[in-house]
């Protein structure tokens, strides 16, 4: 029904949707890129304050979340392989694991932010503005914005993976039409890619 005026090219163009996804990933990279510019400038201007503030973060939670995301990246990559091998059951299982891992990541993040809130640290909080140096205010401002935006991308990624999972179950995504799953995978790896840089910049300051 939806193809009324679409190019009546009978075969569907897998390469085109892959290229489209990559281009979208570029825009996402530059979206975060803007934040990385802000981060690098302010870290350059306030090296000591960033170190002081960075010690507030818990590197153990950061490391656990890094490993969670890496594992989930692997499971969704495996899911695309198993779809091509026409192993529907395994594909579904792997996607479910990926979604669970994403959820665990978010729960960790929730507790991590919760601890900060308990310490009176949130954007614009009195404790932050009255008791901390300007560099620390900037650090926590960027911490909440960057990890928050990243968490938002995790949620979007989860939704996309859930849609892909439903389509795999229904059988509209299969070995000959894998684009949706492949693009969900690409998006999920993007989320991982950004975390790979967020992790050392926030949790590994000594």
């Amino acid at each position: 029904m939806e193809h009324v005026t679409q190019h009546s090219d009978p075969h569907y163009d897998q390469e085109a949707s892959k290229l489209g996804m990559w281009l979208f990933i570029f825009t996402e990279l530059l979206l975060f890129g803007g934040l990385f510019i802000v981060y690098s400038i302010y870290r350059f201007l306030n090296p000591e304050a960033f170190q002081l503030a960075g010690n507030e973060l818990n590197p153990v939670i950061g490391t656990i979340n890094t490993i969670i995301l890496l594992v989930s990246s692997m499971t969704i990559a495996m899911a695309t392989s198993s779809l091509q091998k026409k192993n529907k059951g395994l594909t579904i299982l792997l996607l479910e694991i990926t979604i669970m891992l994403a959820l665990v990541f978010l729960i960790n993040k929730y507790f991590e932010w919760g601890v900060k809130f308990d310490h009176g640290i949130w954007p614009g909080s009195q404790h932050l503005i009255n008791d901390m140096s300007k560099g620390e205010i900037l650090f926590f401002g960027l911490y909440f914005v960057m990890t928050g935006l990243h968490a938002l991308h995790i949620i979007i990624g989860m939704i996309i993976i859930i849609v892909a999972l439903k389509r795999v179950q229904k059988g509209t995504v299969h070995a000959d039409r894998p684009s949706l799953l492949e693009n969900a995978g690409l998006y999920w790896h993007l989320v991982d890619l950004i975390w790979i840089f967020l992790f050392p910049l926030f949790y590994l300051i000594h």
């Binding site: 802000v38 400038i41 302010y42 201007l45 306030n46 949130w122 954007p123 614009g124 503005i129 140096s133 300007k134 560099g135 205010i137 900037l138 401002g141 960027l142 909440f144 914005v145």
Partner: peptide, 14 residues
């Protein structure tokens, strides 16, 4: 909305 400070000179922003 929140006053995160990134562009506010009073909070260290540039």
């Amino acid at each position: 909305i929140f006053g995160i400070g990134v562009f506010d000179p009073a909070l260290g922003g540039d």
